[in-house]
Design a protein around this nucleic acid. Sequence first.
DNA 1: AGATTGAACGGATTGTTGATTATTCAGAAA
DNA 2: TTTCTGAATAATCAACAATCCGTTCAATCT
Lengths: 208, 208
Amino acid sequence: MAEKDTIREQIVQAAKKRFSHFGYAKTTMAEVATDCAMSPGNLYRFYPGKLDIAEAIATEDYTKHLEHMRKLAVTPGKPAPQRLHDLLFEELRRTYHKLEKDPRAYEMALVISRERPEFANWMLHEERKILVELMDEAERRGEFVPEDKDFTAEMIQAATMKFRYPQLWSKLTLPKLERELEGVLCLLLNGLCPAAQALARQQQHQAA
Amino acid sequence: MAEKDTIREQIVQAAKKRFSHFGYAKTTMAEVATDCAMSPGNLYRFYPGKLDIAEAIATEDYTKHLEHMRKLAVTPGKPAPQRLHDLLFEELRRTYHKLEKDPRAYEMALVISRERPEFANWMLHEERKILVELMDEAERRGEFVPEDKDFTAEMIQAATMKFRYPQLWSKLTLPKLERELEGVLCLLLNGLCPAAQALARQQQHQAA
DNA sequence: AGATTGAACGGATTGTTGATTATTCAGAAA
DNA sequence: TTTCTGAATAATCAACAATCCGTTCAATCT
């Protein structure tokens, strides 16, 4: 069924074009069908519905992003705190720019997260896997050894929620968000306790 | 102008009763006026508008809450991490219960945070002052010494955003939220670095 | 047979109208 | 004059109609 997959891809491409020009709501299935030289009804042999096409687009897009993130998580030559920093900043900047400059992308994000909450869960889950990979790598190199890596990944996500959907929570500008993320990350890495901080500083000096 | 303040308080009381029975939207200014034995127009000599009455109610309520929080922040005999824990959990439980069991309160919270975003800022600002007091006290007792307390308070708030408006972000139950807050707090206190963690553990043992 | 169509169904969305209500203000009452 | 009223105004909301569009499926084509 390579044929079927080709058509599915064609549909996704046509829909992507329409969605990004006119928006999700203003694009009709009839239009997408016409672009693919088929009848509206025939679309349903390839996708269960309009939302599923949008989800396919989002999945394709996010999967690419995940590959990039995975590379950042295990970059050789960078210490674990640096890798975590790069990862979280990449995530912040990506969503910020995507949602900021492109109202269509914002619309699609809203629709999908409202209508398909499990998609947001999937994204979090995938990102968590990468965080765990980062920690596995850190363990291998003797940098960090969190007791329960999965739990720790969940907590890192909870603490950085504000930076994952920046424009849903606040109207802060990117520089302010970056400053805050920097601060939160520093707290997460070093903790509040003075002794812990002192030690963390020692380690940084040793590394330098 | 003690007279004027009495009437303002009377208006707030009447509105509070109406809002909590029938909701903000379903309460008319004419009704509140009748309850206060005055004409609708006269209300505007005491408050600029309906929203300002709601804001007055919320302010009164939150101010009481702040007093309670301030006590928790400086409770003698409890170590600073414990006080921070109590503070954040109190905040979580309060908002959770308030918004969970009472759709009227939820409606008012939505309206105020949409129409008067500066009110949410004010709340955050007040809470931050309490966090700084907690740290001042910790410094006095030689527990913590964050370099920039104001900044640190901001970062603590950023990291615990998810628990401050729990039902706006997620549909998690209170036990799950509590488990997550526990984990985030632990990360914030001790940090990710193993050496820092080990030290933190030593300190806890010494304290016990 | 399996693949495809496009008309038909119904749920959602839009536009319109009428009513409700927050807010104002000219004037009445004190 | 200052305090208050209540009708007038304008903005918002609710209800209804009309339309649109996602989805289905009986009929057609290959």
